[in-house]
Design a protein around this nucleic acid. Sequence first.
DNA 1: GAACAGTCTGGAATATATCTAATGTGACAT
DNA 2: ATGTCACATTAGATATATTCCAGACTGTTC
Lengths: 141, 141
Amino acid sequence: MNAEAIKRSLESGGLRCTPQRYAVMAFLTECKRHPTAAEIFEAVNRVDPRSSRATTYNNLRDLVQAGLVREVAVEGRAARFDAKGMRHHHFICDRCGNVEDIEWYNVRRPASRSLGKRILRECELIFRGLCIKCAQRRASG
Amino acid sequence: MNAEAIKRSLESGGLRCTPQRYAVMAFLTECKRHPTAAEIFEAVNRVDPRSSRATTYNNLRDLVQAGLVREVAVEGRAARFDAKGMRHHHFICDRCGNVEDIEWYNVRRPASRSLGKRILRECELIFRGLCIKCAQRRASG
DNA sequence: GAACAGTCTGGAATATATCTAATGTGACAT
DNA sequence: ATGTCACATTAGATATATTCCAGACTGTTC
Ligand SMILES: [Mn+2]
Ligand SMILES: [Mn+2]
Ligand SMILES: [Zn+2]
Ligand SMILES: [Zn+2]
């Protein structure tokens, strides 16, 4: 995604395009991994403009609220983030906690009877097990 | 579940049945909510034996590893726990973070092509939106 | 009854995330 | 151009959640 497209997506989410916010969004858009807030903070500060830790967290919160970024909570570890581009599911490694994308496919929604009066926004499918690295390590070690 | 059954389930997981560990498991088994570690710590200490915070965390870790307890990570909040009794899915409220059980139904597994050499242990389906309380509050407020 | 593995404990330490109060920035009106 | 306003940023302090640690305890085996 180019600079203009990022700018537009920020504005479509009702967010001003500030240099720090742009840097976070641009990094997430190009990043194939699922970085933590600390990694994002470090990455956007390797290039100018310098951004503070608080601003990184603030902007991540805003981007998540605007629906442009997804936050993935991993038990016992720092949250991870990714730009919501193409729909996909996630695989989380039991051993190393890495989050990997899995090709999207349709998920059956729950019966409205079991949802009751809850308001459903989204269904998230998470796969758990061992990532390739950890599976190999277990097999050979 | 009665005391004997809890004792057996601990031992089936390769865990000694210590008073503190039993207390955690017994509380989770009867608890309909999804308590945090702090809530579990407080609850098991309302009745003897007193258990330390570190022991509560240690035992929760052991129980999760043994597959008897599930840990649910919620973004920006403390992890929540429940005893793995009947299979079920989870609904997590965007607003208050509450975790609620949703009747289980079968989930289609990913194509083995998209899993690659990963080792799949489980598929977890998480629904997100507003719980009944928060939906009402939004409607009326 | 010594030795041992596993467990428990309180407190310290770490990791993660949020808050605060002061400052900066850009849009817009006067 | 200046004042004003909402919003954004900043460094550092603070809060929260979890893990680590070193020593004490417990139950079992030889
Ligand atoms: Mn992803
Ligand atoms: Mn549950
Ligand atoms: Zn792994
Ligand atoms: Zn709610």
